[in-house]
Amino acid sequence: MSEQEIALSPTRPYLARAIYEWICDNQLTPYLLVDATQANTHVPVQYVKDGQIVLNIAPHAVHQFQMSNDAITFSARFGGVSQNIYVPLAAAMGVYAKENGEGLFFDPTEYDGIDTATHETIATPEAKAEPEKKRPSLRILD
């Protein structure tokens, strides 16, 4: 199998878990920036602004928090009403600390060409052609 044929899983879930843990270990408040327009994203729409929502995912603010390779799920109170939240990792735009803004914002094209339901690469005419090599990119906030 050539290097082009090997489909690697996205790095986003691994980086999100690492940054979340780092923020919590430093007694800061982890915030999750979400693209609420992505398919299968379940967030309280009344708090969505410009297609995005920022969620406090601190351990004391959420219940049954789970961050898998596919999605971030938890329940939290919004306006005193408990709601179940489901954020596919493709909709997670970044994880950062409320207090100083440090964290990671993810490459918005990382999930392009990936069927998030099956994690299979979608064959498109462009994908069949010689794919251009993308350099990894991370954005660190100061």
Rank of each mutant, 00 (worst) to 15 (best):
P44N: 09
V62R: 01
S68E: 10
G51M: 11
T29M: 02
R77M: 04
V87M: 07
L32F: 03
E102T: 07
N100H: 15
C24N: 04
M67P: 00
A71M: 08
N100K: 13
I6H: 12
V87K: 03
L104R: 01
A36H: 15
E132K: 12
Y96S: 00
N26D: 06
T11W: 04
A123V: 15
Y96P: 00
L55E: 07
V87H: 04
R77E: 12
I140H: 14
S68M: 06
I85E: 05
T121C: 08
A76M: 13
L89I: 13
L33N: 04
H119W: 10
I23V: 04
A18G: 08
G51F: 11
V81H: 13
G101S: 12
D107I: 09
T109S: 11
N26L: 01
T29F: 01
D25F: 05
F105W: 13
E132F: 07
N56V: 03
H119I: 09
A127N: 14
P131A: 12
P30C: 00
P59A: 08
N84R: 10
P44E: 13
E21Q: 07
T116Y: 08
F106G: 06
P44H: 11
F74E: 03
T109I: 04
R139Q: 14
R77A: 13
D107N: 15
E126I: 08
Y14K: 07
L104W: 00
Q27D: 06
L8S: 08
T116K: 05
I72W: 02
P59T: 06
T41I: 07
L15K: 05
P30E: 05
L89K: 10
I23L: 06
F78K: 09
I140G: 10
G103W: 00
D112F: 06
E110G: 03
Q83K: 14
A71Q: 12
Y96Q: 01
Y14S: 07
H42K: 11
Y96I: 00
V95M: 03
K49V: 05
V62Q: 02
I57F: 01
W22N: 04
T109R: 06
R135C: 15
E110H: 06
K98N: 00
E5N: 14
G103K: 00
D25I: 02
Y31P: 00
M67I: 02
L8Q: 08
S2L: 10
V95I: 10
F74D: 03
T124Q: 13
A18Q: 10
T73I: 09
P44W: 09
D115E: 08
V45F: 11
S137R: 15
M1F: 05
V54Y: 03
Y96T: 01
E99W: 02
M1T: 08
R139L: 15
P88T: 11
N84I: 10
P88W: 10
A58R: 00
P10G: 03
T37A: 14
W22M: 05
A127Y: 13
L89E: 11
T121Q: 12
G94P: 03
A90L: 11
Q27T: 02
Q52H: 14
I122K: 09
F65H: 08
F105I: 11
D142I: 03
A97M: 09
S68W: 10
P13C: 11
G113H: 10
A91C: 06
E120G: 05
R17N: 13
A61F: 03
Q83F: 09
T41A: 08
I85P: 07
D25G: 08
V34W: 04
G94Q: 06
Y86M: 05
I85N: 04
G80W: 15
E132H: 08
Y31T: 00
S82C: 12
G79I: 04
